[in-house]
Structures are given as structure tokens and as C-alpha cells.
Design a protein around this nucleic acid. Sequence first.
DNA 1: GCGTCCAGGTCTACC
DNA 2: GGTAGACCTGGACGC
Length: 302
Amino acid sequence: MIETRFSIPTPSHFSLWRTVYSHGWCALLPFHVDKEAQELVRIIELSDGTLASSSLSNGATGIAVRVRSQVKLSTDQKSEISGLLAMSLRVEEELSGFYAEARRHKQYRWIPETGSGRLLRAPTVFEDVVKMICTTNCSWALTTVMIENLTKHLGRRFADGAYSFPTPEALAGTTEHFLRKNIRAGYRSPYLIELADGVVSGRIDLESWRTSPLTTVELFEKVKSIKGVGDYAAGNLLKLLGRYDYLGLDSWVRSRYYDLHTRGRKVSDRTIERRYESYGTWRGLFFWLEMTKHWFDHKFPF
DNA sequence: GCGTCCAGGTCTACC
DNA sequence: GGTAGACCTGGACGC
């Protein structure tokens, strides 16, 4: 095994572990947090099919990256890995406007101070969409089971025994019966096949969403045109595309809101949305960070 | 041990 | 445009 090391420069107000633990993605394979080594680990599949294992930690000049591969990586391959990791960690996302807005509100000043606000995403939109569909209408425990099954049955095995996330081609090459029986994806199975088929055929261009010229409302409708993606999933996928106009309400976050703001009393979604309207296009990000602030009070980063 | 409910919802048919 | 019912799974809960 050949080891390569490099560093990814980070902007001010960047926190690796606030980003890694920004939501549940770090607990879904191929992402894995090695708490003992204090590293975020994942297998990356490069555009030429090469597999590599990347380990990320805090470094003196940014994110310290350690890559293991079976062949010596070319300059282009190292550059591709660096780009994919930087993109997943939202290193280049412009948040100065968001932080300026946060400083205007006493209750949100902790956000720029802690380097919060960057939401971890997968190297591909395809992976994000598949995972988001697998979070719908089930417990988090079942989501982790479905994603683990997907990677282990349809991903590629690296030398260390870890797996990559399946490609659209790998998913499209299965059957609804296989996904129901082996992945435990249930009624989501035909949705996943249809998504993968659409990507493979070129009918659906998911990767273009990250640089889409569409308005956020238009993009929201486009995301929702994917079978299995409704208001909750589309709202949260937009956050991973850098657009924060939607709250992405689900039962967990509603419950959290009731605990924080209404002493446990249920209120309508419209009431929740009204509370954050004044934060404009950043409202979804303020909302999510407020709902999850307590995670870092108790158990994160280590 | 068994039945029911529900969890980080969505789709379709029907009104 | 609004809503009821169906849809996979698996853990929690009550009996």
C-alpha cells in the first residue's frame, strides 16, 4: 500500500469537526469517523476507476489528508481526490454573507465563532440523493442498514476491506427484487432503480444541480420530480446544493422545534416557517444549526 | 409471543 | 389544492 500526504487549505471560520458532524452523513458509509485516531475516513472512487482510502484530520495548515492506494497516484489523481474532499467539506463555499447575518443576531453569534454552517455532503449528488431517499419514512437505524447494505452489496471493495459507494451503473444493474430482499429498501426500491436508470441514460443530470442557473424555487421543483423525493427530502437536498431557503421539516426536527420553542406543544409547519422568514435565503441554515446546537454542547467533537 | 404504532415521508387516486 | 390510504422495515411498547 502506498501512502500519500497533502493538505487542503481552509478559510477562516472553518471547523473540520463542526462540518463532519453537521448532520448524520458522517455516520453513513462510506463515511466513517475513527474516533480514536480523530479522523474522517472514506473510500473514494476516482473518475478512472481507481480506489483510494482517504483519512482526514486537523492539520497545522488546514485539513491534513492521508491517502492510501495500491498504485502510486498521479498528480491528476491527487488533485481529483483533493477536489472531491474539499467539495464534500464545502471548503470553498462562500459563507461571509451568512456569518455577517449571524453576527447581527445575539442568539446566532456562536455560529461564526465556532466555524459552523458547512454541511457535509457526498462527493456526488447521486450519493446524496440515494441517501436522502433512504432517510424517508423510517428510523435512522434502518437508514444506516440500507446504506450499509448498498455499499457492501453494490460498492467496490478496497484492499482494507472497506467499500466505495455504488455507482449509478451498479445500482441500475440490479433489480427491484434484489433491493427489497438484500438492501431492505422496501417500497423505495423502484424509486432507486428509476433514479439510477435516469442517471445512466443521461435523462437525469444530477451533478449539474450544484451549479444550476435555476432559481431556488425552480430547482426545488426539479429535485422533487425525482420519485421518492418529497418536500422534506428536496428541502434538505437543496441545503447540500448550497441553497438554504427551505427548512426541510421532518418528524425529528419538528419535535426538536416543539421542545425548544413551544414547550412541547405541536404547531403547524407554517408557524415554524414564519418564525424563520426574516432570515431570508439563509433561513434553512439558521434553522438547522439552531436545532442541532445541543449536539456540540454534549458529545462532539470527541 | 403477538398486535399495534411509528420513525428524520411520498405517491396516487379521488374529491 | 387538499386529503385519505397504501407502502417496506424493524424496534418499542402494551397486553
